[in-house]
Design a protein around this nucleic acid. Structure first.
Lengths: 220, 220
DNA sequence: TCTCGCTTTAACGCATTTTTGACGCCGCAC
DNA sequence: GTGCGGCGTCAAAAATGCGTTAAAGCGAGA
């Protein structure tokens, strides 16, 4: 379980880091919005704690950018307790909103609640016919046999399985697997779709392409 | 979408009912914990708003009983703002905790956030008679049958469906599909209107031309 | 430092899609 | 009747996107 803290106050970062690490989280942090977004792309945290008052950009803006490609749970921290700000944050896709000063215990409790909810979806193995994905360990198996996948292959396949039978657009896939700055690099997909096709060969599964739109994982 | 309110104060129930119904929820309510649990069993609400200060039993106790068999999202309402109570509620499986007096708008926002996490958001499909367009997946279907469209065909058809029954000018269509620099290339439209006509053949839909003005998608 | 595995880049042939050009039709104005 | 402009139709040409393969980077661990 890794958490990402985006906050410019060092005291807050220290406090949260201590609290989270004591609960078994691996913690990363960022002082400014830009760095936070990069961290999110690069390290794919399981939860994000986001301060609204960042020096370089508005926290709600950070959240919006993040939500363009990620559904990671986000808990907002803020000194401001104005309703309009809260509503904007929830509207932008926040999962919870805590005003400073906050109780660390409550924060952790809220975080746990979010994670628990998230867990219902993610901990449950993704399955499609003979293919089973285990998100907790990033492992896969086909017809009961373990299937060796690289991290990128796993991420791509997971996206396809989540929307099995439906087209997932090129943009969605690229954002989810390579991050928002790779939206135009559709050749990545060609290469990796190919890798996966080879590994799924002989099974009832098929990665189909919808020209100009995206890919779809089908069961024959 | 149905919500269950468990609260003994009639004013609160009325207030919440109004707010929720205006957001499209079907609302049921209960005055005491026992009734609330029964309601939950029989009507399986999609979300529960639970007051901690019930006359017959402790709210946390209600939550615990509920969690023995249900994972429905629960938002706690409470006049008490003591940390110990909050922690107990979260520990018992609450999804959020709001202290009275609360802002209705914020409450709804928090509820929406929980529901969003729950994954109950359906894409808003464009529909016109037998034709359905799914913008999230760039997919189309006619009479339930998948309809294969190229990206350009899809974009054009989407424009027409959005303004179904009304004339869309040549300029508007060209700008929306080919970009502003193609405003004069009405030739494109003749070709693609034609493609679409062939693909919509046999359905009740018809792409009509208003000479010199634009095109219109009609239902016969 | 070297090796290995993974990711990124590049290159090519092929299929599909988009663009372009050609032609005939129709309605309207002259 | 004739000429003209907008339209529908068709098909060839150009552009784009895809699958495939292989080689070049890159980083972690030996």
């Amino acid at each position: 379980m890794t958490a990402l803290i985006i906050d410019d106050e060092i005291q807050i970062r220290r406090l949260l880091r201590m609290a989270l690490e004591s609960k078994g989280y691996t913690v990363r942090d960022a002082e400014i919005g830009q760095m936070g977004l990069q961290e999110a792309v690069f390290h794919k945290p399981d939860v994000i704690l986001l301060d609204l008052g960042l020096p370089d950009m508005d926290g709600v803006e950070v959240l919006k950018r993040l939500r363009e490609w990620s559904t990671v749970p986000v808990l907002i921290l803020s000194v401001r307790d104005q309703e309009a700000v809260k509503l904007a944050a929830f509207d932008a896709g926040a999962d919870d909103y805590v005003s400073k000063p906050f109780s660390t215990a409550e924060l952790i409790a809220r975080l746990t609640a979010i994670q628990r909810r998230q867990g219902c979806h993610e901990a449950a193995n993704l399955q499609l016919g003979p293919l089973v994905l285990d998100p907790a360990h990033h492992e896969a198996s086909l017809n009961g046999q373990p299937l060796k996948l690289t991290p990128t292959e796993y991420a791509l396949l997971a996206q396809l399985v989540r929307h099995a039978g439906k087209v997932v657009t090129l943009k969605q896939l690229l954002r989810a697997v390579w991050g928002p700055q790779a939206e135009e690099q559709s050749h990545y997909l060609r290469v990796y779709a190919n890798h996966l096709r080879k590994k799924l060969e002989g099974s009832a599964l098929e990665i189909k392409n919808e020209p100009g739109i995206g890919y779809r994982l089908d069961q024959r």
